[in-house]
């Protein structure tokens, strides 16, 4: 379900034509990286190691190095490195969003700074650009 882009400023062009906010033909699972503590762990041990090196605190350098090493080795044993957002969840979220867009009343430029502005412009071609 990767977006296919055929022009510069594709979303703007779509909105120009009044064809923005389309639903795709089908929805697919999206694979995302799973959460991992490794980045945070290395941020902390890296800071500790740098501090130890600056102040000649060799015990801290060694300790930080060992924790880093153990963390990296432990990371190698992790097999669940991705999480999948199911197609149905993608569909639910996207259709909810489209429904919200449909229910919103579009406004033109002159109403931009009023409370009528809910973030949806009328197609620029039809006069949003004053």
């Amino acid at each position: 379900m990767l977006p296919e882009i055929y022009s510069i400023d594709a979303f703007m062009t779509e909105k120009d034509r009044g064809q923005g906010w389309q639903a795709p033909d089908r929805y697919e699972d999206i694979e995302m990286p799973a959460n991992s503590a490794l980045g945070v762990v290395i941020a902390i041990t890296g800071l500790a190691m740098a501090f130890g090196l600056v102040w000649y605190m060799w015990w801290l350098v060694i300790a930080a190095g060992l924790v880093t090493l153990v963390a990296i080795i432990a990371r190698g044993f992790v097999r669940q490195t991705t999480r999948t957002i199911s197609a149905s969840e993608v569909q639910r979220t996207h259709e909810h969003w489209l429904e919200q867009v449909r229910r919103t009343t579009p406004i033109n430029r002159s109403q931009e700074q009023t409370t009528a502005n809910h973030g949806l412009p009328v197609p620029p071609i039809e006069g949003a650009v004053q």
Partner: peptide
């Protein structure tokens, strides 16, 4: 922004 800047 007009429609004629569509570059396939």
């Amino acid at each position: 922004m007009s429609q004629n800047n569509v570059i396939p």
